[in-house]
Write a protein that binds this DNA or RNA. Structure first.
Lengths: 233, 233
DNA sequence: CAAAGATTAATTGTCGACAATTACCCTTTG
DNA sequence: CAAAGGGTAATTGTCGACAATTAATCTTTG
């Protein structure tokens, strides 16, 4: 079973309050583009739509703002962030730095059990991939799953909060809205293997380098894709 | 004039709403320890103290939570984060990764004018330091000022938000509450010089390495200090 | 007819009150 | 006397209404 659902709730705490539920609903809606990127948010309208009061809606909006999914200006209102190429590349730069460090820390701090669990996960991905070769959706989930486990393995609460609590929602949003069905599936899998090996060897320095290259490769892949699109147009 | 005040308002937008003002007040109070670290926050009590309604207070609390200065649990309440050594070291790990990358990006993206401005700032710090040699407070401000400029120089909004909007309040909180009057003043100044030189040379790779060492040195200095304290006790 | 200013409408910020959940204290019981 | 249970008090979550600010419309004027 995938651990990916936990990405929605980094604290692993179920949504108990109604503001939590509305936050979850809006999170999915924004990430999946059902609430358009860059669109203005009307508090009265959304409150009516979700059948809650404006106070509760604003509570949900505050949490969305924590994830950097919406932006607020005083006395003006909220807007969904818009998906620009520059924004996407900025996120990859941050990921390269943070996940690289997370990987170094994971090599240093993961327990043997955690390492074993991650190796098992990789084996499962290998089968799943062999079965449904070319179907990139599972690879997408597998990729997020892998990165998620590495981040948790850092045992650094600040890293975990920033990456799982904030950035990953944005990453998913970009992936879905830009239709990024990675064509790097098999290569990415090999890179995951190397990284896990480095972690297993407790070689933090190598683990960081490999993770940074892994993410930088994705970024360059996107840059290339964008360049092609611009050339066609 | 120092740019350090801008740290309180990363958006450079003045506090217009009352919730903003209360946020500012509480931010200073928490950072300076006037609201004790780890203490529970009573919404009715604080609302009365600041002479505002609970709704407005909760708005301010939400912004404090965005800075990771308080933590909330559903139906339980808010607590000020507590200053633990582990937490401090975690932040330094994140800073090493993010500011290292910010420095690389700064070498790549800063305009010539920005570089010149930063060199001027360093010269000013040199004089200020020569005058008040040993007085670490100015060095503290100078240090934050330097790091602040590098981060802005990255021209990466995500990096700027995370570092200036979130982490630096925590950094200041730890510095004040742990009484970290850095004894690395002169050495830190030299390191700053080298980093600026690398940025001036547009050598992103070197700039990142130097910044990471600079921050790692601070972290190790703290670890050493802690070890000494434990030995004495 | 275009542009600037005033007036109106709509949206956001703030407030106080009620409902739901949690924490505390007292009583009861083995 | 310790521990479990129930009841009360306090705290948090939610709601609807009012005040302040902003956006839109209309009028006036060059």
């Amino acid at each position: 079973m995938s651990t990916i659902m936990a990405l929605d709730n980094p604290t692993l705490q179920k949504a108990v309050t109604t503001a939590d539920k509305v936050f979850d609903a809006m999170l999915h809606a924004i990430v999946e583009g059902k609430i358009a990127a860059g669109s203005k948010i009307s508090e009265p309208e959304l409150a009516k739509q979700y059948e809650i009061s404006r106070s509760t809606l604003r509570e949900a909006l505050n949490r969305l703002e924590k994830c950097h999914l919406i932006e607020r200006k005083a006395n003006v209102g909220s807007r969904v962030v818009d998906c620009t190429i520059e924004g996407l590349l900025e996120i990859y730069v941050v990921r390269e730095a943070l996940e690289g460090m997370a990987c170094r820390q994971a090599a240093q701090n993961m327990s043997d059990d955690e390492v074993a669990e991650m190796q098992a996960m990789l084996a499962q991905h290998a089968n799943s991939q062999a079965l449904k070769d070319g179907i990139s959706y599972y690879q997408e989930e597998g990729d997020l799953d892998f990165h998620y486990k590495v981040i948790l393995g850092s045992h650094n609460q600040q890293l975990i909060n920033i990456l799982c609590g904030q950035l990953y929602h944005l990453v998913r949003m970009y992936r879905i809205q830009f239709g990024m069905h990675s064509p790097r599936a098999t290569r990415a899998f090999q890179e995951h293997s190397s990284i896990i090996q480095a972690i297993c060897d407790r070689d933090g320095e190598l683990a960081e380098i490999l993770m940074r290259r892994h993410i930088a490769a994705s970024r360059k892949n996107i840059e290339k894709k964008i360049a092609q699109q611009n050339q066609q147009a």
